[in-house]
Design a protein around this nucleic acid. Structure first.
Length: 884
RNA sequence: GGGCGCUUAGCUCAGCUGGUCAGAGCGCUGCCCUUACAAGGCAGAGGCCACAAGUUCAAGUCUUGUAGCGCCCACCA
């Protein structure tokens, strides 16, 4: 046993212990999840951060929560496995690599696919490990031997197998369609990757000449340059104003095209002029109308959103913005602009590229979603999968009920290349995960693989099982799938969560997880979302260095309520730091007082404990219970609060203060019992706090653990011991605390120096006498009281300050120090409060309905309350009388 | 246009299943360097729980409206 007197530093210095402990955990393989274990499994798969990403405060929040769940499960004796890894993040990484190359003066277009991928892998190998190291700094107890990357060999195979499976099932098809196009990355993107922003712009009204007349049709647009691709003008068939236009044609300005006027109910006669220019190749609505009316589809853009050869020569090659100005200028010259209005509309932006998207006709691969969605919808709505907080179910349902086909292909190089091969000789299409040697139909070896790669999410949606051996069956997969809990941000509920659920059912027939916890969104103290462009996102490592990792973890847990945004500020981390320091010093105090080793022989569980010990043990049981309840519901902030208050308010403010009187007690047995209890409670506290603050708790554990104790990380999670559930001790201790506080209040309000002692008289009614007498010493020490005498039915002595505590009066003779005005003020305030409450309770008890309908125990409680209150009020009143 | 959420002390926010829930931290006031901790201790001031109806014996706590704020989704040129 380690009982030599150890002196802890006065101030907790987190940075000296963290790395050492992490290495110790690692070298003992404590993080390992063993698929051969008999223990019940508890599994989490990490939401894989982008491989080239850096740790953000969002990651800190998210991964601390996962670590809490994993560490708790491990301590509860489960086979805990947290699978870590990173995501190749196709478009995001490719963008970064392109930028990196550009800085070096290398143009992506000048490279071959292989050359580019060489650079990309180099980049990945250089930066891919950073975030992994950062997660380790945070203390994450992931099984690093199982680290996966969404493009490593086995995973790549899983992605291709999934594609082939879905293709063979007829769910994947190729189509020439209007898709969201990101001109920056020159790729299609999915609907979910488009973010709409309000943009202040203009609404331009153009005059289109009606063929063979002198008349004009007025159409409005926010995108003047698209007029070069117009192939019709539409009006509502019910719009009588334009009856005469039916059957007429338009001379499209700036071009030599004659375009028809069509009728369609889509047009809202109330909006604008009631006439709409139709650009089928560049607008989703116009696309639909184009198909319906068999219009011409004229693609007027290149893949970078400059204008192509389908427009008149003078516009070719111009960027869309430049083209817009030129179109406006040219129309102006022709006097074809009717008017210009200010207009605010929502413009779709590419999430990654950061530029307005185009709607662009192109050949893409799509996945039919309706069918896949069904089992997922069912699971989330029947409680097979539970969302926390539950209101996200509605968001999920809304999307799922309206789910559209998923555009899977991306015109990028970094990613999983689509496993579709076309025979150059006979046009046979071959879809398989292994590259075919020759055409299955004609035997030709001239096969060409589809150049596109898959959307990142088409690989990460397999994450919960592809991190194991899927599609191969194995013990691991069996043991650890389905996983238990997913913790992620609500911003990727569609991108990832919904799709993982679909994939889980489609490929394994089982849900990928049982609970999904959606974290808060972190904002700065002004309420702005953390973002790179604003530069308002703090660097977690600065914070770790400044406050200690445990403090950051604990602080952020404390401030992260369920389902709401959280305003983050460094100040709030100070709470965490202060708490760690408090804990450190409590432990320090205890070690300093372990002077008599005999305490180790005391089995306090068998002796009849004294009140303060009974009380703190009772509080410990309640605390264990509450932490369990809160964590079961994923209320991390409340669990943190519970442990915080127990440590600070119960253990430090009261028990340790009481224990001080014990340690200097003459009777060694009493002191040693107190030592034993102090150590016991502290050890349980360390265990309860370990998931939140793993470093400091493991470190302190080292000072208190017995020989048979394992390291804290694999020690037992505290169990509630009903033996210590003595409720009476709480009642009695609260009385004692009230007496002590009342005396302190008197001393403080009368400006009695803390250094000077005073005497006191307790005027009691017998009820609390034995407890008071027995623990007199505690009162004397904590209040600096010299003599205490106990009386019944005595009047207030002269020149004494008075406090009323329950059915007792406490008199403290202070001679000239008593300030009657202060005394009076205090009593008046209390009198006011009490009479209000008494009035309310009396009214309640006089209410016939209340007596009849409220449950018996509630009525009883009110009666008892009234009794106590009336007694207190009477004493206050009589004291006030005397002060007159 | 639809959906969701928020409105509780000066500030930032907790309050699970309706009956000691009116709370915490920071800030503020006073006193203390009391031999674990000044990143601390003790004591104190401060709120008709956004507003209005309703349900109930009982409502920050449930229902419905109103007003502000925020977010998500949606093709209005």
């Amino acid at each position: 046993m380690k009982k030599e007197t150890v002196q802890l530093d006065k101030v907790y210095k987190p940075n000296e212990i963290e790395d050492r402990l992490y290495l110790k955990w690692m070298s003992n393989s404590y993080f390992r999840g063993d698929e051969n274990s008999e223990k019940e499994a508890y599994t989490i798969v990490i939401p894989p951060p982008n491989v080239t990403g850096m740790l953000t405060m969002g990651h800190v929040l998210n991964n601390t929560m996962q670590d809490i769940l994993i560490r708790k499960a491990r301590m509860e004796g489960k086979e805990a496995l947290w699978v870590p890894g990173t995501d190749h993040a196709s478009i995001a990484t490719e963008t970064k690599v392109v930028n990196m190359l550009a800085e070096k003066g290398i143009d992506k277009d000048s490279l071959s696919r292989e050359e580019f991928l060489g650079h990309a892998w180099e980049w990945k190998n250089k930066y891919g490990g950073i975030i992994i190291n950062q997660l380790q700094k945070l203390g994450c107890s992931c099984d690093w031997e199982r680290e996966r990357f969404t493009m490593d060999e086995g995973y790549h195979n899983a992605v291709l197998e999934a594609f082939v499976h879905l293709y063979n099932k007829g769910l994947i098809y190729r189509g020439h369609r209007l898709v969201n196009w990101c001109p920056a990355s020159k790729s299609a993107i999915s609907d979910e990757e488009v973010k709409h922003r309000e943009v202040k712009g203009k609404l331009w009204y153009f005059k289109y000449p009606v063929l063979d007349t002198d008349e004009f049709v007025i159409v409005a647009t926010t995108r003047p340059e698209t007029m070069l691709g117009d192939t019709a003008v539409a009006i509502n068939p019910k719009d009588l104003r334009y009856k005469k236009l039916i059957g007429k044609k338009i001379e499209l300005p700036l071009t030599d095209r004659i375009i028809p006027i069509i009728l369609d109910d889509y047009v809202d006669p109330e909006f604008g002029t009631g006439c709409v220019k139709v650009t089928p190749a560049h607008d989703p609505n116009d696309y639909e109308m184009g198909k319906k009316h068999n219009l011409e589809f004229i693609n007027i853009m290149n893949d970078d959103a400059s204008l192509n050869d389908n427009v008149p020569e003078e516009y070719r090659g111009l960027d869309r913005e430049v083209a817009r100005q030129k179109v406006l200028h040219d129309l102006e010259q022709l006097n074809l602009i009717e008017k210009i209005e200010d207009y605010t509309n929502k413009v779709g932006y590419s999430e990654r590229g950061g530029v307005p998207i185009e709607y662009y006709m192109s050949e893409q691969w799509f996945l039919k979603m309706k069918e896949l969605a069904q089992p997922a919808i069912k699971a989330v709505n029947d409680g097979t999968i539970n969302f926390h907080p539950g209101h996200w179910v509605k968001t999920f349902n809304h999307w799922m009920d309206n789910v559209t086909d998923w555009c899977l292909s991306r015109q990028l190089w970094w990613g999983h290349r689509i496993p579709v091969y076309t025979c150059q000789d006979c046009n046979e299409i071959i879809v398989q995960s292994q590259e075919p040697a020759k055409c299955l139909k004609c035997g030709s070896v001239k096969l060409k693989q589809d150049p596109d790669v898959l959307d990142t999410w088409a690989s990460s949606w397999l994450w919960p099982f592809a991190v194991f051996t899927w599609p191969k069956k194995s013990k691991e997969l069996e043991k650890f799938y389905p996983t238990d809990t997913l913790i992620t941000g609500p911003d990727i509920i569609f991108f990832w969560v919904a799709r993982m659920i679909m994939a889980g059912y489609e490929f394994l027939g089982q849900p990928p997880f049982k609970d999904v916890y959606f974290t808060s969104i972190l904002r700065d103290d002004k309420g702005r979302k953390f973002s790179k462009s604003l530069g308002n996102s703090p660097d977690p490592f600065d914070l770790f260095a400044r406050y200690g990792t445990d403090a950051v973890r604990f602080g952020i847990m404390l401030m992260a309520p369920q389902g709401l945004d959280v305003l983050f500020s460094n100040e709030r981390l100070e709470v965490g730091r202060n708490f760690m320091n408090k804990l450190w010093n409590a432990a320090r105090f205890v070690t300093m007082n372990l002077t008599d080793e005999k305490y180790q022989e005391i089995d306090f569980k068998d002796v009849d404990l004294e009140l303060p010990e009974k009380w703190i043990m009772n509080r410990l049981q309640t605390t264990i219970e509450e932490i369990n309840q809160r964590l079961d519901k994923f209320h991390f902030n409340e669990a943190a609060k519970v442990i915080y208050e127990f440590v600070w308010s119960d253990y430090c403010d009261w028990y340790i203060e009481v224990a001080k009187t014990r340690f200097i007690e003459q009777k060694a047995e009493l002191a040693n019992t107190a030592r034993a209890v102090a150590v016991h409670v502290l050890k349980k506290t360390l265990a309860l706090l370990h998931p939140f603050a793993p470093f400091i708790t493991e470190e302190l554990w080292g000072y208190f653990k017995d020989q048979e104790d394992k390291d804290l990380i694999i020690s037992h999670w505290p169990k509630v011991e009903p033996k210590f559930g003595d409720k009476q001790s709480v009642e009695q201790m609260n009385m004692l605390k009230d007496v002590i506080s009342a005396i302190r209040t008197i001393r403080s309000s009368m400006n009695v120096s803390p250094a000077s002692t005073a005497d006191m008289i307790i005027n009691h009614e017998g009820k609390n006498l034995s407890v008071l007498q027995r623990y007199e010493r505690i009162i004397r020490t904590l209040c600096n009281i010299d003599e205490i005498s106990y009386e019944k039915n005595i009047a207030k002595p002269d020149q004494a300050a008075v406090a009323v505590v329950r059915d007792m009066e406490i008199f403290i003779p202070l001679g000239g120090l008593v300030d009657l005005q202060v005394e009076k003020k205090r009593f008046l305030k209390r009198h006011g409060e009490l009479s209000n409450i008494v009035k309310n309770v009396q009214a309640k008890l006089n209410n016939q309905d209340f007596l009849e309908r409220a449950p018996e125990n509630v009525v009883q409680k009110e009666k008892l309350k009234l009794d106590d209150l009336v007694k207190e009020l009477a004493k206050i009143t009589s004291n006030l009388e005397m002060l007159k």
